[in-house]
Amino acid sequence: MMIRTALATAAISLVAACGSMAPTMPAYSQAGLPATVQVPAGHKVAMETVGVGEITYECRAKANDAGQFEWVFVGPNAKLLDRGGRQVGRYYGPPATWEAMDGSKLTAVQLAVAPAMAGNIPLQLVKANAAMGTGAMQGVTHIQRVNTQGGAAPAAPCSAGNMAAKQVVRYQADYIFYKAM
Rank of each mutant, 00 (worst) to 15 (best):
67 G>Y: 01
136 A>P: 10
44 K>R: 13
73 F>C: 00
36 T>C: 05
158 C>I: 00
137 M>A: 09
93 G>L: 01
86 R>W: 11
147 N>P: 12
111 L>M: 03
170 R>W: 07
52 V>G: 08
97 T>R: 05
81 L>Y: 11
101 M>Q: 12
49 T>V: 13
68 Q>E: 14
145 R>K: 10
77 N>C: 05
175 Y>M: 10
172 Q>S: 14
79 K>M: 08
68 Q>N: 15
48 E>V: 09
146 V>R: 05
160 A>Y: 05
82 D>F: 04
130 A>G: 02
89 G>W: 09
76 P>I: 10
66 A>Y: 12
94 P>Q: 07
51 G>E: 02
59 C>Y: 12
129 N>D: 00
45 V>T: 15
124 Q>T: 07
70 E>Y: 08
120 N>I: 09
139 G>I: 14
112 A>H: 14
101 M>F: 04
83 R>V: 12
166 K>R: 04
47 M>H: 09
151 G>N: 00
116 A>F: 02
171 Y>H: 05
77 N>W: 05
157 P>M: 03
132 M>R: 00
162 N>C: 01
141 T>K: 15
62 K>P: 05
39 V>C: 02
85 G>H: 00
56 T>F: 06
69 F>A: 02
136 A>V: 15
79 K>S: 13
117 M>Y: 05
177 F>S: 08
108 A>W: 08
